[in-house]
C-alpha cells in the first residue's frame, strides 16, 4: 500500500458516499445517470466475486463490501425510492454498446481463461467506460449540479491516482498489470474534458455549465 493507492481508494469511497448523500439529502436523483450506476454495480459485482474465494486483508474485504452495497443502494434510490425524480428522458445512452464489446474483449484479452479471471477482466474494461452514460447525460442537459461535479471529480481522480500507484509499483516492486494500466489510462482520459471544466469553473465557485 502506497500513498497513491490509499488516496485513490479514499477518493473512490468519497465519490460513492457523495453520490449517496446527494440523492438522500436532496431527495432527488436528477442529473444522475441510472445507466452509469447499473454499469458500476455490474463492475463491482463481477470484480469482487473473489470475496468468496480469496482473502487478502480486512481492509480489502471491507472496501469491496462497501462498494457493492453502496452501488446497489444507489440503484435502489434511483429506480425505486426516488424514481419520480429520475431523469429518464435524458439518460438514453445505449449501455449494450458498452457491455457487449467489453464482454467480447474480456473473452479475448485476459490473463487466464477462467470464469473469475474473465469476469475480473470484463469488470476492468467495463469500469473504464462506465461513466460515459453519465457524461452523456451532462452533455445533453448542458450542466451539472455542483455536488454532482464533486462526485465526478472524486470518481475520476481515483483512477488517475491508481495510475500513479502503478508507476510507483512498477519502479519499486516490479509489479505491473497491463490490462489494468491500459484500461486505467482510457478511464482517466475520458474524464480529462470534465477535469478541465471542473478546475476552470467549479473551483472558482461557478456552476458547471458546458460552453454553448
Amino acid at each position: 500500500m502506497n500513498i497513491f493507492r490509499l488516496t485513490g481508494d479514499l477518493s473512490h469511497l468519497l465519490a460513492i458516499l457523495i453520490l449517496l448523500w446527494k440523492i438522500w439529502k436532496t431527495r432527488s436523483c436528477s442529473g444522475i445517470s441510472g445507466r452509469s450506476q447499473i454499469l458500476f454495480a455490474t463492475v463491482y459485482t463481477a470484480r469482487y466475486l473473489d470475496l468468496f474465494t480469496n482473502f487478502v486483508s480486512v481492509y480489502n474485504s471491507v472496501m469491496k463490501i462497501i462498494f457493492i452495497a453502496a452501488a446497489f443502494a444507489t440503484l435502489y434510490l434511483i429506480y425505486v425510492k426516488f424514481k419520480a425524480t429520475y431523469d429518464r428522458n435524458h439518460d438514453t445512452f445505449r449501455i449494450e454498446f458498452l457491455l457487449a464489446p467489453c464482454a467480447l474483449l474480456a473473452l479475448i484479452l485476459n490473463h487466464e481463461f477462467t470464469i473469475l479471471e474473465v469476469l475480473w477482466t470484463f469488470s476492468i474494461y467495463l469500469e473504464s467506460v462506465a461513466i460515459l452514460p453519465q457524461l452523456f447525460l451532462v452533455s445533453k442537459t448542458g450542466e451539472a449540479e455542483t455536488i454532482t461535479s464533486h462526485y465526478l471529480f472524486a470518481l475520476g481522480s481515483y483512477r488517475a491516482l491508481y495510475l500513479l500507484n502503478w508507476i510507483y509499483r512498477y519502479y519499486f516492486e516490479g509489479f505491473f498489470d497491463l490490462i489494468a494500466i491500459v484500461a486505467g489510462i482510457v478511464q482517466t482520459v475520458l474524464y480529462c474534458d470534465f477535469f478541465y471544466l471542473y478546475i476552470t469553473r467549479v473551483i472558482k465557485g461557478r456552476a458547471l455549465k458546458l460552453p454553448a
Binding site: R5, D9, D50, N54, V56, S57, E112, Y162, D177, A180
Partner: peptide, 10 residues
C-alpha cells in the same frame, strides 16, 4: 510466478 494473480487492489 505470475504476480497479477494476487489481486490486492480494488
Amino acid at each position: 510466478e505470475d504476480q497479477t494473480r494476487v489481486k490486492d487492489e480494488l
